[in-house]
């Protein structure tokens, strides 16, 4: 349907960044590798979650992708451009939100910040006004349109920041922790907007977050970075499967029952109350669809051995998945 799929919008080749850090109370400097030999590419239209612990190298990678930091070795190309040499051109094609820093003028009303940003990107004023209106409607910003930025709540400000990054209709949107500190409702609204925006414009999204809900709702691909290296690149269910985290069946039985071992497709995880409650891990269904057992079959097998009182299914906890990746990498 288009050529965009073929040309990657982000290409990182052996991307590496080392910092010299002065040790406390010493003149000697240590080299810290923030990003190590990272190779990945993102195709146009993809939506990629970029996750990792604090200090794992996420922000450093983003800064190299947009030309703020020079790689120590390796290379990055964004929108087909060398971000260092052609930063200004790139700035027209990328929108970025750094969760902690504002691109708005804090003492001016939101409206004025958008007018200025329209001029900064040298947009024709009619086009800028139309796009601003569109974003203001979609992100429900009209209520605080004339309020100075410094008086906005965190959720209001974040919506304004994302709208500001999208004002010039970039091909690539990079969001660094966009939902940090937001309440549940604000998060949900923001995610809905991003889904709609991507559906309408085909914008590529690169998102760093600690919130797995963001990844689950917004991303079709996950990159996990750990100590500067790429620990995983693939789908979210695949990630769960990789580390052996699947859904867990929790069953309450009428009478204490011996451990339910030997049921096909499940692994017994543990028992409580002398076998009154038992936890069974369902085999992951990430890699091969069809390998996963059907729950009715499992339940039938269980009821042959004991009387069921209650059951619940626990979805894989992505925090836990990521934790497993980190510990696996450390061990």
């Amino acid at each position: 349907m288009s050529m965009r799929g073929s040309a990657p919008i982000i290409e990182a080749e052996g991307l590496t960044r080392r910092f010299l850090v002065r040790r406390k109370g010493s003149v000697r400097r240590d080299t810290v590798t923030a990003v190590a030999d990272m190779t990945f590419s993102v195709a146009a239209g993809e939506s990629v979650g970029y996750i990792g612990a604090n200090g794992a190298g996420k922000s450093t990678t983003i800064k190299m992708l947009i030309g703020i930091l020079v790689p120590s070795s390796g290379s990055a190309r964004t929108c087909g451009l060398d971000p260092l040499r052609r930063r200004k051109e790139l700035a027209r094609r990328v929108g970025v939100v750094f969760g902690q820093r504002s691109q708005l003028w804090w003492d001016l009303p939101v409206r004025e910040s958008f007018a200025i940003l329209g001029d900064v990107h040298r947009m024709p004023s009619a086009a800028a006004a139309a796009r601003t209106d569109e974003l203001a409607q979609q992100l429900d910003m009209t209520g605080y349109w004339d309020t100075p930025v410094r008086q906005l709540s965190l959720g209001q400000r974040m919506r304004a920041e994302i709208a500001a990054a999208l004002l010039h209709s970039p091909e690539l949107l990079i969001l660094d922790e966009p939902t940090i500190g937001l309440d549940v409702l604000s998060k949900q609204r923001l995610r809905e907007f991003l889904i709609a925006e991507r559906a309408a414009k085909g914008t590529t999204l690169l998102l760093t977050t600690h919130d797995m809900g963001d990844i689950e709702r917004l991303c079709n691909r996950v990159l996990v970075v750990d100590h500067g290296t790429l620990a995983y690149d693939g789908s979210l269910p695949g990630l769960a499967a990789t580390v052996g985290a699947g859904r867990v069946l929790v069953i309450d039985l009428a009478t204490p029952t011996p451990d339910l071992i030997g049921i096909p497709g499940v692994t017994h995880l543990g028992s409580e109350g002398g076998g009154l409650r038992q936890r069974l891990a369902l085999a992951g269904d990430g890699d091969q669809p069809g390998a996963a057992p059907s729950i009715p079959v499992v339940l039938a097998a269980v009821s042959e051995r004991a009387e069921l009182r209650d059951l619940s299914i626990e979805e894989p906890d992505i925090e836990d998945v990521v934790r497993r990746i980190y510990t696996a990498a450390e061990g």
Binding site: M3, R122, M123, R131
Partner: peptide, 29 residues
């Protein structure tokens, strides 16, 4: 249409416009 171009700088908009716009806002503030 997926292949649409981003809103590139319009040639008709002066290269001083970005600076003028920021400065005017600072003065107003």
């Amino acid at each position: 249409m997926v292949d649409q171009l981003p809103a590139h700088a319009e040639p008709g908009i002066g290269r001083w416009t970005p600076y003028r716009s920021v400065l005017a806002a600072r003065i107003r503030a």
